[in-house]
Simulated assay, not measured.
Amino acid sequence: MDTKTLEFVTYCISKLAHVLNMSQREVYQRLKQSGILYDYIVPSYDVLHTFSSRYLVENLTDYMREKGVL
């Protein structure tokens, strides 16, 4: 994972933690265990980083619900 992708992943985790009122560690664990982190966020960085933060959070929370981690 390159630096830009790592910064983006950190940003996503931080935003989700704030919106979901969870610790960043909890969000990270849920994303990792569900496969969202390495099967969706990391490989889709090129597209996802162009979205607004609001859309990004909505997209990721919807996906977390689909995966059963919310």
Rank of each mutant, 00 (worst) to 15 (best):
D62L: 14
T5L: 12
D46M: 15
Y11S: 12
H49N: 13
V27M: 02
H18L: 13
V27R: 04
Y63M: 14
L70N: 09
C12V: 12
Y11A: 10
Y40D: 01
R54K: 15
C12T: 00
R30P: 06
S23A: 03
V19M: 11
D39S: 07
N21P: 00
Y45P: 04
Y63T: 08
E26P: 06
S52N: 02
H18I: 05
I13W: 02
D2A: 09
C12P: 02
G68Y: 06
Y38C: 01
T3N: 14
Q29P: 02
S52G: 08
D2P: 01
P43N: 05
L56N: 03
L37V: 09
S14I: 11
H18V: 10
K32P: 06
L70P: 04
T3H: 10
L56P: 01
E66Y: 05
L48D: 04
V57F: 11
D62I: 09
A17Y: 09
V69E: 01
S23P: 10
E58M: 00
Q29N: 15
R30S: 09
Q24W: 08
Y28D: 04
T61Q: 03
I13A: 06
Q24E: 13
Y11C: 00
Y63C: 05
G68C: 07
N21A: 03
R30T: 03
H18R: 13
T10P: 10
I36R: 05
G35H: 06
L70R: 00
S34A: 12
D46H: 15
I13K: 09
R25S: 10
L70V: 03
H18A: 11
T61D: 06
D2S: 09
S44Q: 14
E26D: 14
L48Y: 09
S34R: 02
D2T: 04
E66I: 00
N59V: 09
L31F: 02
D46N: 15
L20G: 05
L20K: 02
T10A: 12
Y11V: 07
A17N: 07
Q29A: 13
K32T: 12
K4N: 12
Y63E: 08
